[in-house]
Write a protein that binds this DNA or RNA. Structure first.
Length: 418
RNA sequence: GGGGGAGUGUCCCGAGCGGCAAAGGGGGCGGACUGUAAAUCCGCUGGCUAUGCCUUCGUAGGUUCGAGUCCUACCUCCCCCA
Protein backbone atom coordinates (compact mmCIF):
# COMPACT_ATOMS: atom_id res chain seq x y z
CA UNK A 1 0.00 0.00 0.00
CA UNK A 2 1.46 3.32 -0.94
CA UNK A 3 -0.41 5.64 1.38
CA UNK A 4 -2.05 5.04 4.70
CA UNK A 5 -5.07 6.94 5.85
CA UNK A 6 -4.36 6.69 9.56
CA UNK A 7 -1.91 9.10 11.12
CA UNK A 8 -0.22 6.33 12.97
CA UNK A 9 0.60 4.07 10.06
CA UNK A 10 1.45 6.98 7.82
CA UNK A 11 3.93 8.23 10.39
CA UNK A 12 5.48 4.83 10.90
CA UNK A 13 5.66 4.27 7.19
CA UNK A 14 7.31 7.54 6.27
CA UNK A 15 9.80 7.16 9.09
CA UNK A 16 10.82 3.68 8.11
CA UNK A 17 9.46 1.65 10.98
CA UNK A 18 7.48 -0.83 8.97
CA UNK A 19 8.83 -4.14 7.85
CA UNK A 20 5.71 -6.29 7.65
CA UNK A 21 2.04 -5.90 8.47
CA UNK A 22 -0.37 -8.81 8.61
CA UNK A 23 -3.28 -6.95 6.99
CA UNK A 24 -2.35 -3.43 5.94
CA UNK A 25 -5.76 -2.36 4.84
CA UNK A 26 -7.58 -3.75 7.81
CA UNK A 27 -5.15 -2.29 10.28
CA UNK A 28 -5.14 1.10 8.59
CA UNK A 29 -8.90 1.19 8.76
CA UNK A 30 -8.81 0.26 12.42
CA UNK A 31 -6.38 3.03 13.27
CA UNK A 32 -8.33 5.52 11.20
CA UNK A 33 -11.61 4.82 12.92
CA UNK A 34 -10.91 4.06 16.56
CA UNK A 35 -8.53 4.45 19.43
CA UNK A 36 -6.39 1.38 19.17
CA UNK A 37 -4.58 -0.41 21.95
CA UNK A 38 -1.40 -2.16 20.87
CA UNK A 39 1.48 -3.73 22.67
CA UNK A 40 5.12 -4.64 22.44
CA UNK A 41 6.75 -7.20 24.69
CA UNK A 42 10.07 -6.62 26.40
CA UNK A 43 12.16 -9.41 27.83
CA UNK A 44 13.72 -8.75 31.21
CA UNK A 45 17.02 -10.40 30.29
CA UNK A 46 19.10 -7.50 31.58
CA UNK A 47 18.64 -4.62 34.02
CA UNK A 48 18.26 -2.24 31.09
CA UNK A 49 17.13 -2.22 27.50
CA UNK A 50 19.75 -1.14 25.03
CA UNK A 51 19.76 0.92 21.88
CA UNK A 52 18.37 -1.98 19.90
CA UNK A 53 15.12 -1.69 21.83
CA UNK A 54 14.78 2.00 21.19
CA UNK A 55 12.99 1.45 17.92
CA UNK A 56 10.21 -0.43 19.71
CA UNK A 57 9.88 2.29 22.28
CA UNK A 58 9.66 4.86 19.52
CA UNK A 59 6.81 2.94 17.93
CA UNK A 60 4.93 3.08 21.19
CA UNK A 61 5.73 6.74 21.41
CA UNK A 62 4.25 7.43 17.99
CA UNK A 63 1.16 5.49 18.91
CA UNK A 64 0.49 7.79 21.77
CA UNK A 65 1.43 10.85 19.76
CA UNK A 66 -1.16 9.94 17.16
CA UNK A 67 -3.87 9.36 19.71
CA UNK A 68 -3.74 5.70 20.58
CA UNK A 69 -2.99 3.64 23.63
CA UNK A 70 0.39 1.90 23.84
CA UNK A 71 1.04 -1.01 26.14
CA UNK A 72 4.49 -2.08 27.19
CA UNK A 73 4.41 -5.67 28.31
CA UNK A 74 7.12 -6.83 30.65
CA UNK A 75 7.97 -10.48 30.26
CA UNK A 76 7.90 -11.41 33.91
CA UNK A 77 6.32 -14.73 33.00
CA UNK A 78 7.85 -15.43 29.61
CA UNK A 79 11.23 -14.37 30.98
CA UNK A 80 11.20 -17.55 32.99
CA UNK A 81 11.24 -19.49 29.75
CA UNK A 82 13.42 -17.47 27.40
CA UNK A 83 12.72 -16.67 23.77
CA UNK A 84 14.58 -19.13 21.53
CA UNK A 85 13.76 -17.26 18.31
CA UNK A 86 16.79 -17.14 16.04
CA UNK A 87 19.09 -17.97 18.93
CA UNK A 88 21.73 -20.62 18.77
CA UNK A 89 21.85 -21.60 22.37
CA UNK A 90 19.44 -21.78 25.20
CA UNK A 91 19.62 -18.85 27.48
CA UNK A 92 20.72 -19.12 31.00
CA UNK A 93 17.64 -19.51 33.13
CA UNK A 94 16.94 -16.53 35.30
CA UNK A 95 15.66 -16.59 38.81
CA UNK A 96 12.42 -14.89 39.72
CA UNK A 97 14.37 -12.36 41.76
CA UNK A 98 16.57 -11.43 38.83
CA UNK A 99 13.57 -11.08 36.55
CA UNK A 100 11.72 -8.88 38.99
CA UNK A 101 14.78 -6.73 39.59
CA UNK A 102 15.35 -6.35 35.86
CA UNK A 103 11.76 -5.35 35.26
CA UNK A 104 11.89 -2.74 37.98
CA UNK A 105 15.02 -1.34 36.44
CA UNK A 106 13.84 -1.42 32.82
CA UNK A 107 10.59 0.30 33.66
CA UNK A 108 12.31 3.55 34.56
CA UNK A 109 13.16 4.32 30.98
CA UNK A 110 9.67 4.17 29.58
CA UNK A 111 8.38 7.23 31.37
CA UNK A 112 10.71 9.31 29.21
CA UNK A 113 8.90 8.28 26.08
CA UNK A 114 5.35 7.62 27.17
CA UNK A 115 2.93 9.16 29.59
CA UNK A 116 1.29 6.72 31.91
CA UNK A 117 -1.97 7.02 33.71
CA UNK A 118 -5.56 5.89 33.84
CA UNK A 119 -6.99 7.79 30.90
CA UNK A 120 -8.12 6.11 27.67
CA UNK A 121 -4.97 7.14 25.87
CA UNK A 122 -2.54 6.82 28.71
CA UNK A 123 0.11 4.18 28.30
CA UNK A 124 -0.07 0.98 30.26
CA UNK A 125 2.72 -1.07 31.76
CA UNK A 126 1.70 -4.67 32.24
CA UNK A 127 3.53 -7.77 33.40
CA UNK A 128 2.57 -11.08 31.90
CA UNK A 129 3.52 -12.79 35.13
CA UNK A 130 0.07 -11.62 36.22
CA UNK A 131 -1.55 -14.41 34.25
CA UNK A 132 1.27 -16.77 33.32
CA UNK A 133 2.68 -17.60 36.73
CA UNK A 134 -0.47 -19.18 38.05
CA UNK A 135 -1.51 -21.13 35.01
CA UNK A 136 -2.77 -24.60 35.64
CA UNK A 137 -0.84 -26.90 33.35
CA UNK A 138 -3.57 -29.33 32.39
CA UNK A 139 -6.15 -26.65 31.95
CA UNK A 140 -3.77 -24.66 29.84
CA UNK A 141 -2.96 -27.63 27.64
CA UNK A 142 -6.62 -28.33 27.03
CA UNK A 143 -7.73 -24.75 26.49
CA UNK A 144 -4.76 -23.38 24.64
CA UNK A 145 -2.31 -26.15 23.80
CA UNK A 146 -4.79 -28.02 21.66
CA UNK A 147 -4.89 -25.15 19.18
CA UNK A 148 -1.23 -25.46 18.32
CA UNK A 149 0.18 -27.74 15.69
CA UNK A 150 3.72 -28.83 16.40
CA UNK A 151 4.22 -29.49 12.70
CA UNK A 152 3.47 -25.87 12.00
CA UNK A 153 5.56 -24.51 14.83
CA UNK A 154 8.54 -26.48 13.59
CA UNK A 155 8.19 -24.79 10.24
CA UNK A 156 8.85 -21.30 11.58
CA UNK A 157 12.18 -19.83 10.59
CA UNK A 158 12.84 -18.75 14.13
CA UNK A 159 12.93 -22.37 15.20
CA UNK A 160 14.29 -23.89 12.03
CA UNK A 161 17.62 -22.14 12.27
CA UNK A 162 18.14 -23.76 15.62
CA UNK A 163 17.17 -27.20 14.43
CA UNK A 164 19.11 -26.94 11.19
CA UNK A 165 22.25 -26.28 13.15
CA UNK A 166 21.57 -29.45 15.05
CA UNK A 167 21.32 -27.57 18.26
CA UNK A 168 18.86 -28.72 20.80
CA UNK A 169 15.70 -26.86 21.51
CA UNK A 170 14.32 -27.75 24.87
CA UNK A 171 10.64 -28.28 25.40
CA UNK A 172 10.74 -25.38 27.79
CA UNK A 173 11.92 -22.97 25.11
CA UNK A 174 9.64 -24.49 22.54
CA UNK A 175 6.75 -23.36 24.70
CA UNK A 176 7.82 -19.76 24.52
CA UNK A 177 5.87 -19.04 21.37
CA UNK A 178 2.78 -20.61 22.86
CA UNK A 179 3.01 -18.36 25.88
CA UNK A 180 3.57 -15.32 23.71
CA UNK A 181 0.58 -16.23 21.58
CA UNK A 182 -1.45 -16.66 24.71
CA UNK A 183 -0.32 -13.25 25.96
CA UNK A 184 -1.72 -11.63 22.86
CA UNK A 185 -5.11 -13.26 23.37
CA UNK A 186 -5.11 -12.51 27.07
CA UNK A 187 -4.25 -8.87 26.45
CA UNK A 188 -7.09 -8.67 24.02
CA UNK A 189 -9.51 -10.00 26.59
CA UNK A 190 -8.25 -7.83 29.40
CA UNK A 191 -7.44 -4.58 27.65
CA UNK A 192 -8.87 -4.85 24.17
CA UNK A 193 -5.44 -5.04 22.58
CA UNK A 194 -5.71 -5.52 18.82
CA UNK A 195 -2.18 -5.21 17.57
CA UNK A 196 1.18 -6.58 18.57
CA UNK A 197 4.32 -4.93 17.30
CA UNK A 198 7.92 -6.05 17.54
CA UNK A 199 11.14 -6.60 15.66
CA UNK A 200 11.02 -8.66 12.50
CA UNK A 201 12.36 -11.63 14.42
CA UNK A 202 9.08 -11.67 16.30
CA UNK A 203 6.92 -12.17 13.22
CA UNK A 204 6.40 -15.88 13.75
CA UNK A 205 5.54 -15.48 17.38
CA UNK A 206 3.08 -12.68 16.68
CA UNK A 207 1.35 -14.48 13.86
CA UNK A 208 0.94 -17.44 16.16
CA UNK A 209 -0.93 -15.17 18.51
CA UNK A 210 -3.22 -14.03 15.74
CA UNK A 211 -4.02 -17.63 14.86
CA UNK A 212 -4.70 -18.49 18.45
CA UNK A 213 -7.01 -15.50 18.61
CA UNK A 214 -9.00 -16.84 15.69
CA UNK A 215 -9.47 -20.12 17.40
CA UNK A 216 -10.29 -18.65 20.76
CA UNK A 217 -12.76 -16.14 19.44
CA UNK A 218 -11.05 -12.78 19.71
CA UNK A 219 -11.74 -10.03 17.19
CA UNK A 220 -9.28 -9.88 14.31
CA UNK A 221 -5.78 -9.30 15.66
CA UNK A 222 -2.92 -7.72 13.75
CA UNK A 223 0.85 -7.90 13.50
CA UNK A 224 3.31 -5.17 12.65
CA UNK A 225 7.06 -5.65 12.68
CA UNK A 226 9.93 -3.26 12.35
CA UNK A 227 13.05 -3.97 10.31
CA UNK A 228 15.96 -5.59 12.02
CA UNK A 229 18.40 -2.88 12.85
CA UNK A 230 21.85 -2.89 11.48
CA UNK A 231 24.14 -0.05 10.62
CA UNK A 232 24.85 0.69 6.98
CA UNK A 233 27.92 -1.51 7.13
CA UNK A 234 25.97 -4.36 8.59
CA UNK A 235 26.92 -4.27 12.23
CA UNK A 236 24.27 -4.88 14.82
CA UNK A 237 22.86 -1.84 16.50
CA UNK A 238 23.47 -1.16 20.09
CA UNK A 239 27.10 -1.84 20.71
CA UNK A 240 29.32 1.02 21.63
CA UNK A 241 32.98 1.42 22.27
CA UNK A 242 32.66 0.20 25.80
CA UNK A 243 29.99 -2.41 25.30
CA UNK A 244 26.24 -2.31 25.04
CA UNK A 245 24.47 1.00 24.65
CA UNK A 246 22.26 0.81 27.68
CA UNK A 247 19.33 3.11 28.06
CA UNK A 248 19.40 3.27 31.83
CA UNK A 249 21.35 6.27 33.01
CA UNK A 250 23.01 4.36 35.81
CA UNK A 251 24.47 1.93 33.29
CA UNK A 252 25.50 4.37 30.60
CA UNK A 253 25.86 8.08 31.12
CA UNK A 254 24.38 10.73 28.86
CA UNK A 255 27.81 11.61 27.50
CA UNK A 256 28.58 8.09 26.37
CA UNK A 257 25.10 7.71 24.98
CA UNK A 258 25.51 10.92 23.02
CA UNK A 259 28.87 9.69 21.74
CA UNK A 260 27.32 6.54 20.39
CA UNK A 261 24.98 8.50 18.13
CA UNK A 262 27.60 11.10 17.28
CA UNK A 263 29.62 8.26 15.74
CA UNK A 264 26.82 7.19 13.43
CA UNK A 265 27.98 6.18 9.97
CA UNK A 266 27.31 8.80 7.31
CA UNK A 267 24.96 6.57 5.39
CA UNK A 268 22.79 6.02 8.44
CA UNK A 269 22.15 9.63 9.35
CA UNK A 270 18.87 10.27 7.52
CA UNK A 271 17.49 6.90 8.50
CA UNK A 272 18.33 7.41 12.17
CA UNK A 273 16.88 10.91 12.20
CA UNK A 274 13.59 9.42 11.11
CA UNK A 275 13.64 6.46 13.43
CA UNK A 276 15.05 7.87 16.60
CA UNK A 277 14.11 11.51 16.75
CA UNK A 278 10.77 13.24 16.70
CA UNK A 279 11.95 16.04 14.46
CA UNK A 280 9.33 16.83 11.82
CA UNK A 281 9.81 15.20 8.47
CA UNK A 282 10.45 18.43 6.57
CA UNK A 283 13.17 19.34 9.05
CA UNK A 284 14.72 15.93 8.56
CA UNK A 285 14.56 16.38 4.80
CA UNK A 286 16.41 19.65 5.17
CA UNK A 287 19.06 18.12 7.42
CA UNK A 288 19.51 15.21 5.07
CA UNK A 289 20.40 17.63 2.30
CA UNK A 290 23.22 18.96 4.41
CA UNK A 291 24.58 15.49 4.60
CA UNK A 292 27.56 16.37 2.43
CA UNK A 293 29.74 19.07 3.89
CA UNK A 294 27.97 19.59 7.12
CA UNK A 295 27.26 16.01 7.98
CA UNK A 296 29.16 16.28 11.21
CA UNK A 297 26.90 19.10 12.32
CA UNK A 298 23.90 16.97 11.47
CA UNK A 299 25.30 14.11 13.48
CA UNK A 300 25.51 16.39 16.48
CA UNK A 301 21.87 17.33 16.08
CA UNK A 302 21.02 13.66 15.76
CA UNK A 303 22.92 12.78 18.91
CA UNK A 304 21.51 15.66 20.89
CA UNK A 305 17.92 14.99 19.88
CA UNK A 306 18.10 11.31 20.73
CA UNK A 307 19.87 11.95 24.00
CA UNK A 308 17.40 14.68 24.93
CA UNK A 309 14.47 12.31 24.75
CA UNK A 310 16.13 9.81 27.03
CA UNK A 311 18.19 11.88 29.41
CA UNK A 312 16.60 15.29 29.12
CA UNK A 313 17.48 18.31 27.04
CA UNK A 314 19.98 19.83 29.44
CA UNK A 315 21.92 16.60 29.88
CA UNK A 316 22.04 16.24 26.12
CA UNK A 317 23.37 19.72 25.64
CA UNK A 318 25.92 19.22 28.36
CA UNK A 319 27.09 16.07 26.61
CA UNK A 320 27.38 17.96 23.34
CA UNK A 321 29.41 20.66 25.06
CA UNK A 322 31.69 18.14 26.74
CA UNK A 323 32.32 16.55 23.37
CA UNK A 324 32.98 19.91 21.76
CA UNK A 325 35.63 20.80 24.33
CA UNK A 326 37.21 17.39 24.17
CA UNK A 327 37.30 16.87 20.42
CA UNK A 328 37.21 20.28 18.85
CA UNK A 329 39.35 22.21 21.25
CA UNK A 330 41.39 19.19 22.18
CA UNK A 331 41.03 20.55 25.65
CA UNK A 332 39.93 19.15 28.87
CA UNK A 333 36.28 19.04 29.70
CA UNK A 334 35.70 18.87 33.40
CA UNK A 335 32.65 16.70 33.11
CA UNK A 336 34.11 13.80 31.21
CA UNK A 337 33.44 10.54 33.01
CA UNK A 338 35.69 10.52 36.04
CA UNK A 339 36.96 8.20 38.70
CA UNK A 340 38.10 9.20 42.16
CA UNK A 341 41.38 8.01 43.58
CA UNK A 342 42.73 8.53 47.06
CA UNK A 343 45.20 11.39 47.06
CA UNK A 344 47.41 9.28 49.28
CA UNK A 345 47.54 6.67 46.57
CA UNK A 346 48.48 9.28 44.07
CA UNK A 347 51.18 10.60 46.35
CA UNK A 348 52.66 7.14 46.50
CA UNK A 349 52.33 6.82 42.75
CA UNK A 350 50.06 4.69 40.60
CA UNK A 351 51.46 2.60 37.76
CA UNK A 352 50.03 3.57 34.37
CA UNK A 353 48.86 0.07 33.71
CA UNK A 354 46.94 -0.09 36.94
CA UNK A 355 45.56 3.38 36.35
CA UNK A 356 44.07 2.38 33.01
CA UNK A 357 42.96 -1.11 33.95
CA UNK A 358 41.98 -1.06 37.60
CA UNK A 359 41.20 2.58 38.28
CA UNK A 360 39.64 3.86 35.10
CA UNK A 361 38.47 0.51 33.78
CA UNK A 362 39.27 1.64 30.25
CA UNK A 363 40.96 -1.64 29.45
CA UNK A 364 40.22 -5.12 30.69
CA UNK A 365 43.51 -6.02 32.32
CA UNK A 366 47.06 -4.93 32.91
CA UNK A 367 48.08 -7.19 30.08
CA UNK A 368 45.70 -5.43 27.75
CA UNK A 369 47.04 -2.09 28.92
CA UNK A 370 50.58 -3.27 28.27
CA UNK A 371 49.70 -4.30 24.75
CA UNK A 372 48.01 -1.00 24.12
CA UNK A 373 51.12 0.84 25.25
CA UNK A 374 53.00 -1.06 22.55
CA UNK A 375 50.58 0.01 19.87
CA UNK A 376 50.40 3.55 21.16
CA UNK A 377 46.80 3.49 22.22
CA UNK A 378 47.11 5.00 25.67
CA UNK A 379 47.57 8.64 26.54
CA UNK A 380 48.02 10.49 29.80
CA UNK A 381 47.08 14.15 29.57
CA UNK A 382 47.13 13.80 25.78
CA UNK A 383 50.68 12.47 25.73
CA UNK A 384 51.20 8.98 24.38
CA UNK A 385 52.41 6.51 26.97
CA UNK A 386 55.61 4.85 25.80
CA UNK A 387 56.83 3.26 29.00
CA UNK A 388 54.61 0.76 30.72
CA UNK A 389 56.49 1.35 33.94
CA UNK A 390 55.53 5.00 34.05
CA UNK A 391 54.11 6.07 37.37
CA UNK A 392 51.42 8.68 37.85
CA UNK A 393 51.85 11.02 40.78
CA UNK A 394 50.57 14.34 42.02
CA UNK A 395 52.92 16.01 39.58
CA UNK A 396 50.83 14.68 36.70
CA UNK A 397 47.79 16.62 37.80
CA UNK A 398 46.74 19.23 35.28
CA UNK A 399 46.08 22.80 36.39
CA UNK A 400 42.45 21.69 36.70
CA UNK A 401 43.53 19.14 39.30
CA UNK A 402 42.85 15.95 37.36
CA UNK A 403 44.71 13.42 35.26
CA UNK A 404 43.21 12.72 31.85
CA UNK A 405 43.50 9.14 30.68
CA UNK A 406 42.67 8.38 27.08
CA UNK A 407 42.27 5.03 25.39
CA UNK A 408 42.19 5.44 21.67
CA UNK A 409 40.88 8.69 20.32
CA UNK A 410 37.45 8.56 21.80
CA UNK A 411 37.50 7.11 25.26
CA UNK A 412 38.52 9.39 28.07
CA UNK A 413 38.34 9.14 31.82
CA UNK A 414 39.51 11.67 34.38
CA UNK A 415 41.29 10.59 37.51
CA UNK A 416 40.29 12.91 40.27
CA UNK A 417 42.02 12.95 43.65
CA UNK A 418 39.43 12.42 46.36
C1' G B 1 16.95 -49.70 25.48
C1' G B 2 20.89 -50.75 21.23
C1' G B 3 24.54 -48.63 17.66
C1' G B 4 27.35 -44.45 15.64
C1' G B 5 29.24 -39.27 16.09
C1' A B 6 30.39 -34.65 18.65
C1' G B 7 31.85 -31.05 22.82
C1' U B 8 38.79 -26.78 21.69
C1' G B 9 41.14 -20.34 23.75
C1' U B 10 34.60 -17.31 28.74
C1' C B 11 32.38 -13.43 21.55
C1' C B 12 31.65 -17.01 17.51
C1' C B 13 33.35 -20.59 13.84
C1' G B 14 37.23 -23.97 13.57
C1' A B 15 42.45 -26.97 12.85
C1' G B 16 45.09 -29.76 16.16
C1' C B 17 51.21 -37.54 14.61
C1' G B 18 51.74 -37.34 23.10
C1' G B 19 56.24 -31.65 23.93
C1' C B 20 50.78 -26.63 23.22
C1' A B 21 49.41 -20.75 25.66
C1' A B 22 47.36 -24.42 21.18
C1' A B 23 47.03 -23.14 13.30
C1' G B 24 43.36 -20.30 10.51
C1' G B 25 39.05 -17.28 9.99
C1' G B 26 35.11 -13.94 11.65
C1' G B 27 34.13 -10.39 15.27
C1' G B 28 36.40 -6.90 18.64
C1' C B 29 40.30 -3.38 20.07
C1' G B 30 44.57 -0.12 18.92
C1' G B 31 47.64 2.47 15.10
C1' A B 32 48.08 4.95 10.08
C1' C B 33 44.85 7.67 6.58
C1' U B 34 40.32 10.80 7.41
C1' G B 35 35.76 14.17 9.38
C1' U B 36 34.96 11.52 16.42
C1' A B 37 32.29 8.49 9.40
C1' A B 38 32.97 4.51 5.76
C1' A B 39 36.61 1.89 2.89
C1' U B 40 41.81 0.42 2.98
C1' C B 41 46.54 -0.98 5.22
C1' C B 42 49.44 -2.50 9.80
C1' G B 43 49.46 -4.50 14.79
C1' C B 44 47.03 -6.87 19.00
C1' U B 45 43.19 -10.20 20.67
C1' G B 46 44.49 -16.03 28.49
C1' G B 47 46.11 -13.82 33.69
C1' C B 48 50.09 -12.10 36.90
C1' U B 49 54.00 -9.02 41.74
C1' A B 50 56.80 -11.39 34.31
C1' U B 51 63.85 -13.26 30.84
C1' G B 52 59.75 -16.48 35.14
C1' C B 53 55.07 -18.23 37.31
C1' C B 54 49.75 -19.53 37.11
C1' U B 55 45.12 -21.00 34.62
C1' U B 56 42.83 -22.90 29.94
C1' C B 57 40.53 -27.75 25.15
C1' G B 58 32.55 -30.79 28.46
C1' U B 59 33.40 -33.01 34.00
C1' A B 60 36.14 -36.35 37.26
C1' G B 61 39.84 -39.80 37.62
C1' G B 62 44.02 -42.73 35.32
C1' U B 63 48.54 -44.01 32.09
C1' U B 64 53.09 -41.03 31.04
C1' C B 65 59.15 -37.48 32.37
C1' G B 66 55.21 -34.91 29.72
C1' A B 67 47.93 -35.21 27.90
C1' G B 68 43.66 -30.99 23.97
C1' U B 69 45.78 -35.48 21.95
C1' C B 70 45.87 -42.32 24.96
C1' C B 71 42.51 -45.16 28.84
C1' U B 72 38.04 -45.31 32.29
C1' A B 73 33.60 -43.32 34.19
C1' C B 74 30.16 -39.50 34.00
C1' C B 75 27.45 -35.09 31.77
C1' U B 76 25.37 -32.71 27.44
C1' C B 77 24.05 -32.69 22.33
C1' C B 78 23.31 -34.89 17.27
C1' C B 79 22.12 -39.10 13.94
C1' C B 80 20.31 -44.18 13.04
C1' C B 81 17.68 -48.51 14.99
C1' A B 82 13.84 -50.03 18.83
Amino acid sequence: MSTFRSDFLRTLDERGFIHQISDEEGLDKLFATETVTAYIGFDPTAPSLHAGGLIQIMMLHWMQATGHRPVSLMGGGTGMVGDPSFKDDARQLMTVDTIEANIASIKKVFANYLSYGEGPRDALMINNADWLRDLNYLEFLRDVGRHFSVNRMLSFDSVKTRLDREQSLSFLEFNYMILQAYDFVELNKRYGVRLQMGGSDQWGNIVNGIDLGHRMGTPQLYALTSPLLTTASGAKMGKSLNGAVWLNADMLGAYEFWQYWRNTEDADVPRFLKLYTTLPMDEIARLSLLAGSEINEVKKILATEITAMLHGRSAAEAAAETARKTFEEGGLAADLPSVEVGSGELEAGIGVLAAFAEKAGLVASNGEARRQVKSGGLKVNDVVVTDDKQVLTLRDLTPEGVIKLSFGKKKHVLLRPA
